[in-house]
Design a protein around this nucleic acid. Structure first.
Lengths: 246, 246
DNA sequence: ATAATAGTGTCTCTTAGACAGTATTTG
DNA sequence: CAAATACTGTCTAAGAGACACTATTAT
């Protein structure tokens, strides 16, 4: 308990404990749409369905350490900013046993995302757009395992809530990007077409963008200027985040 | 694991599992400041310090059910909207054993808050203002147990992030209230003085307020009109919330 | 009448959408 | 040159802070 005084008649070591896992929502941008990395289940239960990468939290590691370890061991990526999303505790969310899962989200630029997807077997990416449907590249809806569709919904809402005023959008971009790329990220997350001059002004006025003198290569027409993200903005303290929660 | 395929060489039932608890951040408004309900610890560890009410999650109840049960059993309150805040998983946050705690927050009007505080021994309330300090009514800083100061910080940031665009503010008010009361709530959460006409317009334009024809009783001068909160606004779906997260 | 707070009208500033225009590059 | 996109200037509308004003109640 950690909090109130232990009731003398309740010894926690005598009772069954739930297992605790972390599930990872790994997000990239593909074809102008939000994309999530999934693993195809090859065993029961839910064989054939697609699941978020995840794993058990060990007794000697924190939740963040567990999330980073799973990311490293199962996807081969590291050093990414993980953000805790929500904790899911329905009793029968996994038919095998009682499992409480802490969901984490991380954003990747297209190159890292592709690297992660290519790192193992049965990995795939799927777009998850505004309607909550998860589809593969061909547009076929993918069935998700367990309550993972719910987790994805929470991730999408979190992104939508934070994109307007936080710096999460840069997580989906490489180090150098154009304003059009940044606008694409915002439009994908919000599922809305944005006004170009207004978006430009808003982003530049914010002071987060550093113009490199360079220009976008391979442009079929007038190349746009490349910018860098300046770095940590007015991030406060605390493990969680303030900010919009509906 | 719920998510990826079970590694054949890792049987979760063979490993130690953490205990899982819920901790409750129960918030009211007292003297124009945010106030939290705490319980004084009367046993080791952290004897004498103040802690959030909490308890173990049992194997046959969801996280929400556990939070509601603790609220009912330890504070004698019920039927309150609990919102999941964040999950804390530092390895040594409790010296007795590995405990992962899911924090929930609930808001109360002054009457319910007072009822909760009077429901048991060693209960007290403390203001927690913008500076992160927790003080009793006399202004003396209270030492908090475990990582509960961190949890309170997350709660404060969550409130600050949601107050501007969500309906959480009404949770701290009785059924009927004046615009001044509502403004007091916003000012307490934001630690800012707000402009009266602008606040009025904003709240009324939102369409959430229903004017009762009645007037505030016991006013020493011109009594203000009493309003009711209309009900659930554009709340989307999902267990978590969208919205600002810093 | 006075004090005190409720409630309103109006000005200004900021921000963002709309939209047309200019600038720069490739073919 | 045409085509396409980057980038800019300007108008307008919405929202909020500032602030002075009117309204209503108790003493």
């Amino acid at each position: 308990m950690t909090s109130s005084d232990p009731s003398p008649d309740y010894d926690p070591t005598q009772y069954d404990r739930p297992s605790v896992t972390v599930d990872l929502v790994l997000i990239g941008l593909a074809g102008g749409e939000l994309s999530v990395l999934l693993k195809r289940r090859t065993a029961a239960p839910q064989e054939g369905r697609w699941a978020l990468p995840g794993g058990f939290v060990r007794i000697d590691e924190t939740l963040e350490e567990a999330a980073n370890r799973v990311l490293r061991e199962k996807i081969g990526l590291t050093g990414v900013s993980l953000e805790q999303l929500y904790t899911f505790g329905a009793i029968d969310r996994d038919p095998r046993m009682r499992i409480i899962s802490v969901a984490y989200m991380a954003l990747f630029d297209a190159a890292s995302f592709a690297r992660g997807m290519a790192s193992g077997k049965n990995l795939g990416t799927a777009s998850f757009a505004a309607d909550g449907r998860v589809r593969d590249a061909a547009g076929t809806p993918l069935p998700l395992a367990f309550d993972h569709a719910t987790i994805l919904g929470v991730a999408r809402e979190r992104l939508r809530g934070k994109i307007d005023y936080s710096d999460i959008g840069f997580g989906l971009l490489p180090e150098r990007f154009t304003l059009r790329h940044l606008q694409d990220v915002h439009e994908a997350i919000l599922s809305v077409r944005l006004n170009k001059p207004a978006f430009r002004r808003r982003m530049l006025d914010r002071g987060w963008l550093v113009p490199t003198g360079e220009r976008e290569p391979d442009a079929s027409h007038r190349p746009a200027e490349l910018f860098r993200y300046r770095g940590a903005p007015p991030t406060p303290t605390a493990p969680a985040s303030a900010g919009r929660h509906a």
